[in-house]
């Protein structure tokens, strides 16, 4: 028979992880779920209001605005991100000079602080003093109000976010490209397939699992859009860059509507889940 200490040892070993999981993951999720049914401003006691937070969301024009902005951001960001990452990965998979340098260079922005990158791009985008407009002027073109024109601000942020994150997806796709057996391309060459046919008939289908991961990660990261509009535009102009996460943050920490912010958070999580499931279904049908 094992001693009492011996029986307790396994529990002792998993206890640190369980404590970490309970405090950092389980408790916030459960607590915020409880919050969705309450009104709470951090100072007064929580007040039960049933499903009023959910009905308020449905009637909140800024929620719909923020959701629309986020989806607009994703519509630009995901194709741009995946497209650019794929092109770069294919290029970096060729036998080019200084390949290691380029791989590191594209990955560098990923490890640089988001705030630093955003401040840098704010300077690039500045209407009067920005580098981009200086180039346009030098080419004889007009200035563009990158961050102050409501039609352009969100696409400008999407381009910046792509630049910031593309290195990570390049590495993922590069690893996928390198795992495609060379013989498949050789067989295709003998079968008469040109470069374009090889790309669509071998590269893309063989990259499918990685592409799915890249698209899902891009989607989840895209829905988390916060630092860029917070630092660059504050959600403006005319709320055109107000993202879901920025709106949630404002409700919680500017207006102290903790219950409402938690409700928005749960709704956002639900939307992310649905969108990812749709993406997965579509891609798997296309390239099973």
């Amino acid at each position: 028979m094992r001693s009492k200490g011996g029986q307790l040892a396994p529990y002792g070993m998993v206890a640190p992880y369980l404590a970490h999981f309970a405090l950092i993951t389980a408790f916030p999720v459960v607590f915020s779920l409880v919050l969705t049914f309450h009104r709470w401003n951090l100072l007064s006691p929580m007040q039960w209001i049933g499903t009023k937070n959910f009905s308020a969301v449905a009637a909140d024009p800024l929620f719909w605005k923020a959701l629309g902005n986020t989806l607009r951001f994703l519509a630009i960001h995901i194709p741009l991100q995946v497209g650019v990452a794929l092109v770069l990965a294919v290029a970096l998979n060729q036998r080019i000079q200084a390949r290691g340098f380029f791989r590191a260079a594209y990955f560098l922005p990923v490890v640089v602080s988001g705030v630093v990158v955003t401040i840098l791009w704010k300077q690039l985008y500045a209407t009067e003093t920005g580098t981009l407009n200086a180039i346009l002027l030098a080419l004889g073109l007009d200035r563009v109000e990158w961050l102050t024109d409501p039609r352009i601000a969100m696409p400008a942020i999407a381009v910046m976010a792509t630049w910031k994150n593309v290195g990570l997806y390049v590495i993922l796709l590069l690893s996928g490209l390198q795992s495609i057996p060379r013989q498949l391309y050789e067989a295709a060459v003998l079968d008469g397939a040109g470069k374009v046919s090889q790309f669509f008939n071998i590269t893309i289908p063989m990259l499918n699992p990685i592409l799915l991961s890249v698209i899902i990660l891009s989607t989840i990261n895209g829905f988390s859009l916060f630092i860029e509009p917070y630092v660059m535009t504050g959600g403006g102009p005319l709320n055109s860059t107000l993202s879901m996460n920025l709106y949630i943050y404002r409700q919680g920490f500017a207006f102290y509507k903790m219950g409402y912010a938690a409700t928005l958070g749960f709704i956002l999580a639900g939307i992310v889940f649905v969108v990812v499931m749709i993406e997965r279904r579509v891609i798997e049908q296309e390239y099973p």
């Binding site: 013989q183 498949l184 050789e186 008939n201 063989m206 099973p288």
Partner: peptide, 14 residues
Amino acid sequence: DVAMVFQNYALYPH
């Protein structure tokens, strides 16, 4: 006009 059979078959898996 040559056809090749590879050691690891090189079949297109998809």
